[in-house]
Design a protein around this nucleic acid. Structure first.
Lengths: 296, 296
DNA sequence: GCAGGTACTTGACTAATGTCAAATATATGG
DNA sequence: CCATATATTTGACATTAGTCAAGTACCTGC
């Protein structure tokens, strides 16, 4: 590999470990040992199996058990037997734990902002763009996107997350039964395909395409978990879905969406999708896009 | 500060600490405790006063003493009384220590390369550029550039480093006595100025300008320590020197340089300096540049 | 040469981090 | 129901990281 790139990365690594590392130790040190804070911070809201968490953070079983006990003793999390498997346990932040995690987040943001406050607004924009590129490049190695059966457990999980999220976003809620269909058969080759994206092996996103013969391919269920946003994942899935559509012989790709989903719509437009009049009766949509497979 | 920027930095921080942190622990973990490896790695070649090192890494005196003893017992460094001050001690890597440090560097580069090897060459270029921008932005906070008396200790140190470096680069060596003059008086206002750049308080670069009335300002002694390369420091000093020249009433800025100093010359050209015929009798130069103060 | 300060080492600790194996309770496949 | 595997907890450790104060040798300014 290029010498200059390696040199750049040496300097990058030294600088970044010093800065970001110091920042991290700074905001995670709040009267608690670092390991305990980190666990609370990285746990996320919502229940997680202890084994999952342990694996994600690379902790020894005994050590993790004690760290969790420390958090439990402080009233920051509750640990309960898993409903699926009585051997396993699930952790979840309590209200106090969520508040404490929010405080950690706020401190993190504050110190991160301090790192950048001496920059001019133009420089900040440039740095933001650059940080995105670096982040995406570093994460890419742990990111996989694969065609998967729509009835796999992870596919179900992503679909449920997706439905829950748009149900919360749309004022009128989201009713899958009222939506344009996307059955398991319709999302299985040759009638369509479903992609599942994983980061460090954990499902973090999905995207699907229906391939009705002689008609434009139709994108469905584009979703990226909050845990994986900012990594350019949606763009990667979109590229992949478009190439599936092209290979299946489709000459156009279309989709319906809602103006409330601003980030997604911005992506579509940046990729050459053009807004067209309503072309289906999807009740949750108020925008329709179309793109020619050979590039708009 | 902008929400989106903060969000981008959250993701950046999480990803980068995970990746770079894991990398660091990976390559520094070689049968030795992390702290010991880190000390060996961060020490650099060449003798350092223990107190300097301790301050740079933020170590307690007792702790540092023990870490150094561990390295000494392994035969990786030698600790000797300082020639200047018999209370103080200076450390230096032994040949074995240098070899071990080189091994650590190699492993670091190797793992850094692995982080990027799945990228296309174009993506790598983009990431390299982005990494530079981020690095420079993060380091900027700890970077100061100030006008300083040319007879300060740090000014002498920088000058000596600079002379030693170009003496090593030029085939014929560098002889300050044979060079176009830049005496302490010529580099003191109003006849001229000397900038000293510091990173975390340590001097890491210098740059000077002579301001002969009615003639083009003349840049001298542009030097950046290897420890601070890649942070855009030379560019910052150049901007500062040009504005000093402009304020002093100069309408042009000129400089002499040598084609062996490729990186410096690339900077000058990117900043609008144009190559002109020889305009002084500097024996070490083979290139001359000139730029109008209102922008070439 | 002496007082007060500095650079470092050493001893004595403490807390945090991490590892291993035994023990407990539950799951899974026959 | 049994044998075997899995998820977690607990006890018993070992190592690392870090702090503090006392002690030693030396420097600096008066």
């Amino acid at each position: 590999m290029d010498d200059r790139l390696v040199q750049t990365f040496r300097v990058f690594q030294r600088t970044v470990t010093r800065e970001v590392g110091a920042l991290q130790e700074n905001f995670l040190g709040r009267g608690r040992p670092y390991g305990v804070s980190r666990l609370l911070w990285e746990m996320g809201d919502g229940p997680v199996e202890v084994s999952t968490l342990r694996e994600r953070l690379g902790l020894d079983a005994g050590y993790a058990s004690r760290l969790l006990k420390a958090l439990e003793d402080e009233g920051l999390v509750v640990v309960a037997p898993s409903p699926d498997d009585a051997r396993a346990r699930v952790v979840e932040r309590t209200a106090v734990g969520r508040a404490e995690a929010a405080e950690l987040d706020a401190r993190s943001d504050e110190t991160a902002a301090a790192m950048l406050e001496h920059l001019t607004p133009e420089e900040r924009l440039e740095v933001e763009r650059a940080a995105r590129i670096v982040t995406a490049a570093l994460a890419r190695r742990h990111l996989t996107i694969e065609i998967e059966s729509p009835d796999s457990a992870d596919a179900h999980w992503c679909r449920d997350q997706y439905f829950a999220e748009i149900d919360a976003i749309f004022q009128a809620g989201y009713n899958p039964a009222a939506a344009v269909s996307a059955t398991d058969e319709e999302l299985t080759m040759p009638r369509g395909a479903l992609l599942i994206a994983r980061l460090h092996g954990q499902p973090v996103g999905c995207g699907a395409v229906k391939l009705p013969p002689g008609q434009p391919a139709h994108l469905k269920r584009m979703w990226v978990s909050p845990a994986a946003r900012g990594l350019g994942l949606a763009g990667l899935m979109l590229t992949r879905l478009e190439s599936i559509a092209r290979e299946s012989g489709a000459s156009q790709v279309g989709l319906d969406t809602n103006s409330a989903l601003a980030a997604a719509n911005a992506l579509y437009e940046s990729r050459g999708y053009v807004q067209v009049p309503r072309f289906n009766d999807e009740t949750h949509a108020d925008r329709w896009y179309l793109k020619d497979c050979d590039g708009s």
